[in-house]
Design a protein around this nucleic acid. Structure first.
Length: 224
DNA sequence: CCAGACGTTGTT
DNA sequence: GTCTGG
DNA sequence: CCAGACGTTGTT
DNA sequence: GTCTGG
């Protein structure tokens, strides 16, 4: 699931919504229409009480990994049992992050041959945050920052299309997700639930979104 | 104790 | 790093 | 996630 | 079939 998303809000819109004071050099906030695993994306973390954005690669590589290729398999983390997974238990305590987005795609596969892409977003049109985890790998030539997006069961809107959905945090939960003082896993895990379907919408889109090479606005054109 | 794995989705 | 299996 | 490639030797 | 690249 959740192997593509969109970030089209401007830097000003995002700053207003998420209140980051600063951003590291190299943070790119150009609109994106087809963000795929292994690509760089701005991720919001808390650094000494300040919200800051940093570019990270999608596909979590645990800091102890021998081979960073493991990241190709770590684009999502199931919320169920997440605290028991060696790759995620550490980051769940101290490396929680917000993955900012405006929407995401999911493919409905009614049978083996059919694949229909849908675009999901908030009815408000506002950007939102996926619940994410990040880590830093330093066994290569360069420091490697990576992240993963947590998944849960689908809400009523997504259920007909797919059996999983990414965790979208309600705005009031975002600060708690980032708060390093909250270490009790019960408190943290209580935030990982399906988003309110009433506040979301979706529609079919063109299959041009199927190729991750097509990072173009046409990905969002409604289809039949 | 040490060695070895550490993941998800989707499909069968 | 941390957990499981032997 | 999906799309696309999947190899070596030897030469530059 | 499986891995890499986007």
């Amino acid at each position: 699931m959740c192997g593509r998303f969109v970030k089209k809000s401007s830097k000003e819109e995002l700053r207003k919504r998420f209140g980051f004071d600063d951003s590291l050099g190299g943070v790119m906030l150009e609109p994106r229409y087809n963000i795929a695993p292994s690509q760089e994306h701005p991720v919001l973390i808390l650094n000494q009480d300040r919200r800051l954005l940093r570019m990270m690669k999608w596909g979590l590589v645990p800091h102890w990994s021998r081979d960073p290729k493991i990241g190709y398999k770590m684009i999502n983390a199931r919320s169920e049992g997440i605290e028991e997974k060696p790759s995620f238990s550490g980051p769940l305590k101290k490396k929680r992050c917000l993955v900012i987005a405006d929407g995401f795609y999911e493919w409905h596969k009614p049978d083996k041959k059919t694949k229909i892409p849908y675009y999901f977003s908030l009815k408000s049109g506002e950007p939102f945050a996926f619940a994410g985890l990040w880590d830093l790998w330093e066994k290569g030539d360069e420091p490697l920052y990576t992240f993963t997006i947590i998944t849960t069961s689908p809400n009523e809107l997504m259920e007909p299309v797919h059996n999983r959905m990414p965790v979208i945090l309600s705005e009031s939960d975002e600060a708690r997700w980032l708060d390093p003082e909250i270490t009790d896993s019960k408190d943290v895990l209580s935030l990982l639930k399906p988003y309110n379907a009433e506040e979301m919408e979706c529609f079919k889109v063109s299959t041009i979104v199927n190729s991750p090479k097509n990072d173009v606005p046409e990905c969002l054109i409604p289809a039949n």
